[in-house]
């Protein structure tokens, strides 16, 4: 077991983990942060996307020990103290950008990251910016709209 210190959604944790523990499994099983989900084995689907030290990563392809000393933000850490939604969360709701909702946590984290890097993306830039996140329900069109709305871009 290896000792790690991480800050997750604003709370500091010190835990023992097996080195093989994936960050997503640490979040889900040791911290109970089950809002972040696992959708594949090969880093393709992006459902597990979280922010690690300010950048989006696939938490199924990061070991928990690699996050030692780092700061993680998950879907559960986005809403404000009084429950006010992050603008991207709000835009997903307003634009019907989710159906079953399984890809949604990762998709929202990916869109946030995209808008952080490129606050005013074109449609193509949005589509490429979320190419690491698979959705089987929406055909992506309303996710693109939500990203545009969150960016304040007129579609």
């Amino acid at each position: 077991m290896t000792k790690i210190n991480v800050k997750v959604d604003g709370v500091s944790y010190a835990d023992e983990v097996e080195p093989r523990t994936l960050l997503v499994h640490y979040l889900r099983e040791q911290l109970g942060k089950v809002g972040t989900v696992v959708g594949c084995d090969t880093s393709n689907c992006g459902a597990c996307t979280v922010d690690l030290d300010g950048r989006s990563v696939k938490s199924c392809t990061v070991l928990a020990v690699q996050a030692d000393g780092g700061e993680v933000t998950t879907i559960e850490g986005l809403a404000g103290p009084d429950g006010e939604l992050d603008p991207v969360q709000q835009a997903f709701h307003e634009n019907h950008a989710l159906q079953c909702g399984f890809c949604t946590p990762g998709m929202i984290m990916a869109v946030r990251d995209l808008l952080r890097e490129n606050p005013n993306p074109s449609e193509d830039e949005i589509r490429e910016g979320i190419e690491g996140n698979l959705c089987r329900c929406t055909g992506y069109q309303n996710i693109v709209r939500a990203a545009q709305a969150a960016a304040g871009v007129k579609s």
Partner: peptide
């Protein structure tokens, strides 16, 4: 109508079986 379902899905307060 915007969906009633969304509130828990966009905040990660989900009840997937594996959760």
């Amino acid at each position: 109508r915007r969906r009633k379902e969304d509130a828990h899905l966009i905040t990660g307060r989900t009840r997937w079986t594996d959760n």
